[in-house]
Design a protein around this nucleic acid. Sequence first.
DNA 1: CTGAATGCAAACGGTTTGCACGCCC
DNA 2: GGGCGTGCAAACCGTTTGCATTCAG
Lengths: 140, 140
Amino acid sequence: MESKRDLAKLSALGYRITQQRRLVLGVFLADPCLQSAEDIYDKCREIDSSISYPTIYRTLDILVEAGMVRKTHFNQGKSWYEAADNNLHHHHLVCRECGSRFSLRGCPMDLLEEELQRAQFKVLDHQFEIMGICKDCQSV
Amino acid sequence: MESKRDLAKLSALGYRITQQRRLVLGVFLADPCLQSAEDIYDKCREIDSSISYPTIYRTLDILVEAGMVRKTHFNQGKSWYEAADNNLHHHHLVCRECGSRFSLRGCPMDLLEEELQRAQFKVLDHQFEIMGICKDCQSV
DNA sequence: CTGAATGCAAACGGTTTGCACGCCC
DNA sequence: GGGCGTGCAAACCGTTTGCATTCAG
């Protein structure tokens, strides 16, 4: 299923619907988890072996701008992307051993509304990530 | 005041007390706020114009390992450091316009203990940052 | 047909590494 | 004096940019 809605949204923003953009969108539809630019590049390459990193990054920028993808930064100098779709907003536990990621339910931002209002700070984005050792890696 | 305790801690871990390490420690004592490696490099250079980036980074690694400094990642590919000292653990609001940072009181981790225990996830570190527009920049 | 989007190669910025020299213990 | 720590230069890695070509509209 290729999201007609997403393509329409890009179109509405004045962006052309190219093979490459379809492809990147498809990768996000296929996997709602956090993915690095490299992950996305690799998956796209399996289908179209000529797609390039600049196109991946340019497309990701557009998708973030369009609000269809969320971008976060856990580890040193690497960005992670995930579909920002209708799913419930959530955060992650990240295992430092094996790199696997687990979803947390809910978001602690809800609990800070009062304090933020007092600071008169206009929130655009936030990130909340917990690093540690997952259950499986502890037992090794 | 140069923290005798911090130096002793480094010593106890088997690290030598060098001019450069004293200097970097001094910078953290002088400013408890978030600082980038570049900030620290510049401040050190004012005092010892021969100190190098590799030394800054190597020293920061040591201080993080020793638990004396905390490292976080807000923006694309840049790390931020702050003294992890006796001050209350806290997080930040980061203004996307002017880059200034404001402290939040408290930490939402406290509220997640139950869920983390259920996941049997051993927490090593976490980061929580809120990006937006500060009061002053909104009125411009 | 026109200009937005692409791929290539090369630059970028923050960080790390290899190596010979220097200095703490 | 032995070896950890340093500075230098150069590599590294993720990301971005300039430019000629291609293709969506």
